[in-house]
């Protein structure tokens, strides 16, 4: 797909890292404030989508990117399953999804056991999934033109 004028490109270059950082902020503070993996992941995907929309990309590169994102998505889900499965082994009692880490102190950044870790994994998964959906639609549209 084609890109846009250089005004949009320049502003995107400045704003995209900030959006991405904000998404990470939402994910990391998921256990302390509203938001979490899903909301933050969507914001992060927004940064990627903005960049692709502004700069444009050729079809082969998009396909390659789609494959990479698909890989990342599956890896994130597997990570989530493994985290949940670790509960089976570590918690002593055979409990799926057991919160086996130290719960920590209320209101601190490092607290809540493994919930922040799961939030991060979910964030990666949602980000990859939404970017994949977007890229898939773009690929469809580009294929149609040929």
């Amino acid at each position: 797909m084609k890109g846009m004028t250089f005004i949009v490109k320049k502003i995107t270059q400045i704003i995209c890292p900030i959006i991405f950082m904000f998404g990470l902020y939402i994910i990391v503070h998921g256990h302390l404030s509203p938001g979490g993996g899903f909301a933050g992941g969507v914001i992060m995907a927004g940064a990627f989508i903005l960049q692709i929309l502004a700069n444009g990309k050729i079809l082969p590169k998009l396909r390659k990117e789609e494959e990479g994102l698909e890989f990342m998505e599956s890896a994130a889900i597997l990570g989530f399953l493994i985290l949940a499965g670790l509960g089976l082994l570590i918690s002593g009692g055979v409990v799926f999804f057991a919160n086996f880490l130290d719960k920590g102190e209320l209101g601190k950044l490092i607290s809540g056991g493994f919930i922040p870790i799961e939030n991060i994994v979910i964030g990666a998964e949602v980000c990859a999934a939404i970017a994949t959906i977007f890229i898939a639609m773009v690929v469809y549209k580009d294929e149609e033109k040929k």
């Binding site: 899903f38 639609m137 469809y140 549209k141």
Partner: peptide, 24 residues
């Protein structure tokens, strides 16, 4: 509702993908 929104996202994406294919 958070779960349901996620499911809704997936449903809508699949519906749109099929709609685009139908259009082709």
């Amino acid at each position: 509702i958070l779960t349901s929104i996620v499911i809704g996202l997936a449903t809508t994406a699949l519906l749109l993908a099929v709609a685009i294919r139908i259009y082709q």
